[in-house]
Amino acid sequence: MTRVAMTVNGKAVTGEVEGRTLLSSFLREDLHLTGTHVGCDTSQCGACVVHVNGQAVKACTMFAAEAEGADVTTIEGMANADGSLGTIQQAFQDFHGLQCGFCTPGMVMSAAALLKENPTPTEAEVRAYLEGNICRCTGYHNIVKAILAASGQSVPAVAAE
């Protein structure tokens, strides 16, 4: 077992992990941050996306020990300080960008990383960026709209197209 220390959602945390413990397991099992989901075992679905030192990372594809000393943000750290939904989260609700909610944490984290890199993406750029996030429920239509809206671009309202 190895001792790891990192900052998660602004709080210092430590834990004992095996070398093979994935960051996703550490977050879910040890820290009980179950908002980070695991939807596959081949690094394809993106349900597990978190930010590590500001970069979007698939938490199922990184060992917990590799995050030693890192600054990690998960979906639990995305709301505003007063607990209200952040801009991207709010856009997902406003534009019905989620149904079962399982892919949603990863989608929101990927969207945040995209908008940091590219503050006003085109529809095609949003779709291309989400290549590593699978959603089985929404057909992506409303996810794309939510992200465009979160970027401040005008999109048709729900149920008005």
């Binding site: 941050l33 179950t34 979906i75 639990e76 939904l85 989260q89 997902f92 989620l98 909610g101 944490p105």
Partner: peptide
């Protein structure tokens, strides 16, 4: 959506 969007599902 409130719980799903905040990781509290």
């Amino acid at each position: 959506d409130l719980r799903f969007l905040t990781g509290r599902g």
